[in-house]
Design a protein around this nucleic acid. Structure first.
Length: 324
DNA sequence: GGCCAGGTTCGCT
DNA sequence: AGCGAACATGGC
């Protein structure tokens, strides 16, 4: 087993802890992606080779620096560079938050949310395929159940690699899922429907009929058109993929129950917004709806939203906004 | 135990 | 086009 250490300098402000937490909390935490509060680690599949990438923070919010340790059976410079690049993408080290902050700090609804989360970047999945599977897996179930399913999926079908006595697993290949079949997924308690969708997509990817990674070259509208053409993928999933796997700034899952509730808490006296009302707000936040979405969820997770609403600040701004 | 969860499809009007 | 039901596992 070989090992290499490199440093990565994210664009400040960069809060490693918040960003890594956001990466694992409700979306990616499974056997392939881990964060223990200090070290973020992920078993990557780089050019067909497995290698473990581990990151920890050496710097500060405004002068961030990450130490990246790559471990694998064969490490040449190109592999190390590719792994570093991949981790930079996953941890969103290269985005500049300042254009979003300029808008957010002028918005009374967003100011209290954003000010407590400065330096939170928007982590990405390692691949678009991974995001597709995770999104379908997580549809209409609580985040806790989604976590159980993700873990089972990775533990059962992900390629393993043992390092220092610990077994890590990569996210399953489409081929592995095709081999598992719907029965394989049923066996780890996926619903028949989710199993079908996921196996269909895996088969399409394995056969080359569908190339999710190619979506990086398409504009948002085209991404949504292509994705919603896939069985099992609706507007929510397509927009979530814009945020979670394609790094677009303006994704907005307007039908998301948790999002509607959260916005309701902030601007509608606790009454959940209707999707159309949420879309009105999203227009106001364009082209940074991805950031708004992610920051709102992060605020909920951290308990910050509850704090804010207890001082019942801007609870009436929906009507104010409508009038203006 | 019933209800619901960070949706989507399918089958009815 | 718009609406309701079915899907199915776990947690409260």
């Amino acid at each position: 087993m070989e090992q290499a250490s490199v440093t990565l300098t994210p664009v400040p402000p960069y809060d490693f802890n918040l960003t890594a937490l956001s990466a694992v909390h409700f979306r990616d935490q499974h056997a392939a992606n881990r964060f223990d509060g200090a070290v973020f680690c992920r078993l990557l599949d780089v050019r067909g080779e497995l290698c473990l990438a581990r990151a920890r923070s050496l710097g500060t919010l405004d002068s961030p620096q990450l130490e990246i340790v790559i471990t694998g059976p064969y490490l040449d410079d190109a592999t190390v560079a590719a792994a570093k690049q991949r981790l930079a993408w996953i941890l969103d080290a290269e985005s500049d938050l300042s254009p979003f902050y300029v808008i957010a700090l002028q918005d009374p609804v967003l100011v209290p949310i954003v000010s407590g989360l400065r330096g939170l970047h928007l982590p990405h999945t390692a691949s678009v395929f991974e995001a597709l599977v995770l999104a379908i897996l997580g549809q209409q179930i609580s985040s806790h159940i989604a976590y159980l399913l993700r873990t089972r999926l990775t533990e059962t079908f992900g390629a393993p690699m043992k390092i220092d006595g610990v077994t890590y697993r990569a996210f399953p290949h489409p081929e592995a899922l095709v081999a598992a079949g719907t029965e394989g997924l049923r066996a780890i308690r996926f619903s028949a429907r989710k199993s079908e969708y996921i196996i269909d997509i895996s088969a399409a990817v394995a056969s080359g009929k569908l190339e999710p990674e190619g979506l990086h070259h398409q504009p948002d509208e085209e991404v949504i058109r292509i994705l919603t053409g896939i069985r099992g993928v609706g507007l929510w999933t397509a927009n979530w993929l814009l945020i979670s796997s394609l790094g677009r700034s303006n994704g907005f899952p307007s039908g998301d129950l948790a999002l509607l509730r959260t916005l309701g808490t902030l601007v509608n006296k606790g009454k959940p917004l209707q999707p159309e009302e949420a879309v009105q707000f999203s227009g106001h936040w364009s082209p940074f709806c991805s950031y708004v979405t992610a920051y709102l969820f992060a605020a909920v997770r951290s308990g910050r939203l509850a704090e804010l609403t207890s001082n019942q600040a801007s609870s009436d701004s929906l009507t104010a906004r409508k009038a203006g």
